[in-house]
Design a protein around this nucleic acid. Structure first.
Lengths: 233, 233
DNA sequence: TGTATTTGTGTCTTAGTGACACTATTAACT
DNA sequence: AGTTAATAGTGTCACTAAGACACAAATACA
């Protein structure tokens, strides 16, 4: 309470960092949420995040990454600033600014550390609609998802939310989960070849029909962006 | 000095908002800069910006727009959050976060208000290379320009840095100034038609050869994004 | 052996850009 | 008045990557 009052005195906004972590689990797109243990919104789910620690962090990227490492014990394969959300009404404690990052992480890395006292959960994106989420975090998730959708249409970014070995079918499922539309399998295969980002392994796996070729990311490969977006069909 | 100390005590970063304002003037792309009147970097050029005023602003967008209105007496036609820049070394006064917006504005609106004591100038982008700019603002300008370049390749956004009446040739020049590559006139015309954003006026203007058709933005039109990026030729 | 199912290929169509020749219209110059 | 340079605008073929979809290949299971 006192600190709140003091901050207002300096006319500086409350500043924090939040993360929207995506992964592909059980054939659906998930977001990592934690349960609040204090007011406001005590007991509600929210996005993980924390305040910037001027002593520990050189910049806000480090703050966000520190938060992710504390949750999953792994560095995300894709990590990018989304945008800042701000306003006088989004947090009852006063004018607040939340700098939000979003990231894609392999489902293998989900050793969601139970070290913290908090409850942590990979939440299905479709389940979030009907869930009470703290602050404006539902809106933030929607924005992050929208950004991810755009990128999925003209880049290979969706590979980063898969396990390190995967089939074209799994990649297709991930893309379709992200953009919520079906895509042409053929178009995806063309892109996989054109990107040169993946290499086929000497291994195939069962998939209900013909065995499926396994792929993995080539080492030291950069994300490829295409000049054309996929459409829907 | 005291306030600096107090802020450190609360471990909260210095927070401010900055604007990268672009316009097309004298056939070249310009950025609005102001001259610093106090330490640090006194006398150097910097991006316009200011601190969030919790009393005046509902959110950071309003802070940025308030800053723009104070400088140009006009609302920009395109205005968007770029990203936050942060770090312990970018401002000698301590850990700082700058939330940067970028905007495109018509050169007609350049009634750069001399009301403020500051010196204000539209600086040619090519001149910025060899100029001493305060803080990391040169880097910020480069990032904003890069973002603008991307968008220029797949949208009609460059129209927003032109006067309200313009020719295809002027639009072509603006795009080429933004992306620093020549484009095909024919491709541009095809996009102008496909977008449906512009309407031809009953007027033509001199241009050194055949008279050029004047266009303007249709009212109530939304920015069109294409599925394909332009390449270079 | 036959059928359902999924993987993967072949190929025609479609859409939008690149390239570039060609026409149109104006000013300036002789 | 005629010629030329310059810019505006059109016509059209080539190229590329995506959409659509038929079809072949491989596996499980009845």
């Amino acid at each position: 309470m006192t600190s709140e009052h003091d901050l207002t005195e300096f006319h500086t906004p409350l500043f924090s960092v939040n993360n929207v972590l995506f992964t592909m689990l059980q054939d659906s797109l998930k977001v990592l949420l934690v349960k609040r243990t204090s007011a406001p919104f005590k007991g509600r789910w929210e996005l993980p995040g924390e305040c910037v620690d001027i002593e520990l962090d050189d910049n806000t990227d480090m703050s966000a990454l520190r938060n992710i490492k504390a949750l999953t014990a792994a560095t995300p394969q894709f990590f990018e600033q989304l945008q800042a959300f701000s306003g006088i009404n989004r947090d009852p404690r006063g004018f607040s600014v939340s700098l939000v990052y979003y990231a894609l992480i392999s489902p293998q890395c989900i050793a969601v550390k139970p070290s913290a006292v908090e409850e942590v959960k990979w939440m299905d994106l479709s389940a979030i609609q009907d869930l009470a989420i703290a602050f404006d975090h539902k809106q933030i998730i929607a924005t992050a998802r929208s950004q991810l959708q755009q990128k999925a249409l003209y880049s290979m970014i969706p590979v980063y939310c898969l396990a390190d070995q995967f089939t074209i079918g799994q990649l297709k499922a991930a893309i379709e989960a992200i953009i919520a539309k079906p895509i042409q399998r053929k178009s995806l295969i063309r892109r996989v070849e054109a990107s040169g980002m993946l290499e086929a392994l000497d291994e195939k796996v069962k998939s209900g029909g013909r065995l499926a070729q396994l792929y993995r990311l080539k080492s030291d490969t950069e994300t490829v962006y295409f000049e054309r977006s996929l459409s829907f069909g």
